[in-house]
Design a protein around this nucleic acid. Structure first.
Lengths: 222, 222
DNA sequence: CCGCATCCGGGGCGATACTG
DNA sequence: CAGTATCGCCCCGGATGCGG
């Protein structure tokens, strides 16, 4: 939109990422990596196509993303974060932590639900809980009213990756409403309570309790 | 504005703090503490009075701030952050770190300059560098073209406080353009270089080099 | 289909004026 | 000093169209 015209680091940052949708576009690219226009559109329900196009242009100008010709499988182009764009991870982490506190409210009926949002939450909150030299594949299937969609997260102590589908043989799989799955992954809901409320956990169930044994009770305190 | 209507922690957070000016109002209240309407207006050059009033209302509804009858000296009311509002500190920290990288560009001629913005930067970046059980008072005077305004920061290892004026006998005082003062405090500019470029340091000058001896060279890397 | 460009209605935003 | 009132403008959101 318009610059705040203030010589202040916060205002300067908001001049770039303060426009509507921008940080959510970064969220999608941080979750899935290089994505096509239509992929982004799916992950950003409510955005108008012209707005997405305009944002992608200005984000490219701002050096947040770069446009690439897609490799073999698809003959289109993909968008991905630049190094500068990836440095927004701490901003998204902070916003995630702060926004998590409002999650127990559960999705309103009109709220969209996408599994990669919950998966990103998982990557941010529990990835550093993974023991050294291990890789943990977490399957996530959030069932909205209409249909159920799934992703899987590869959790490593130093980071994570998200991809569509359940992948091959995840270590643990969480199925249920986004509220239950997200509640457990954010630490705001104990696995035991969630199970009683309808969460289904398959695979090496002990992994879940291990991940959450030494986590703070709420995600809000520092 | 309007909710994103997505069951995602980031989107939920942006539903509350994503509106224009909101995070900058939080910045002002985090810098100075309880403030009056006109104080906020001074710290937010460019905001229209009706917009400030509207934002203060919605921020009160969102439990970010609360309105209080002012104590003795002023017969008006003051606004201050709630606990929930103070929890936005990490969000501001992350945005500050990210926005700092754009600061060497210096203020454009039209950019406003206020010393508390630089002071907040100091509080965020160097407060934990202060040795235990010590209190360091840092005077800051940023000279814009028209006039020079000053604040002082009381730095403690576990936090900081900002107040107007230079206070009584600060340990060190930095005077100069906002670019020079901010450059040093952000770690993007060495004190030596800044001095050569016109920064004036008075008081216990050694404190400065001590504070910045074991800081990372740039503020951008994790 | 995918990746936009164009058009259009509504509302948030910004500037000014005004009031207790 | 602390807002309220009014008024354009432009951004946003939704729909449609269209070339590759």
């Amino acid at each position: 939109v318009k610059s705040y015209q203030q010589y202040c680091a916060v205002a300067r940052a908001l001049d770039v990422v303060g426009d509507r949708w921008v940080l959510l576009i970064v969220r999608e690219l941080m979750a899935f990596g290089p994505s096509r226009f239509s992929d982004l559109q799916r992950g950003l329900p409510g955005i108008a196509s012209n707005l997405l196009a305009e944002r992608l242009r200005s984000m490219e100008t701002a050096d947040l993303i770069e446009r690439h010709e897609a490799p073999a499988p698809i003959g289109s182009q993909v968008y991905q974060l630049t190094a500068r764009g990836r440095e927004l991870e701490d901003v998204l982490r902070a916003l995630t932590r702060w926004g998590m506190a409002t999650m127990p409210t559960g999705p309103t009926d009109h709220d969209a639900v996408q599994p990669q949002w919950t998966a990103l939450l998982a990557g941010f909150t529990v990835s550093e809980q993974v023991p050294d030299d291990t890789e943990l594949v977490l399957g996530i299937e959030t069932s909205s009213e209409s249909r159920a969609e799934s992703v899987h997260v590869v959790l490593r102590p130093d980071g994570f990756e998200i991809a569509r589908g359940l992948g091959e043989d995840p270590d643990v799989t969480l199925r249920g409403s986004a509220r239950l799955v997200g509640g457990v992954l954010s630490g705001l809901l104990s696995p035991a309570r969630a199970s009683r409320m309808g969460l289904r956990v398959t695979g090496r169930r002990t992994v879940i309790s291990e991940l959450f044994s030494n986590r703070p009770r709420t995600g809000v305190d520092r």
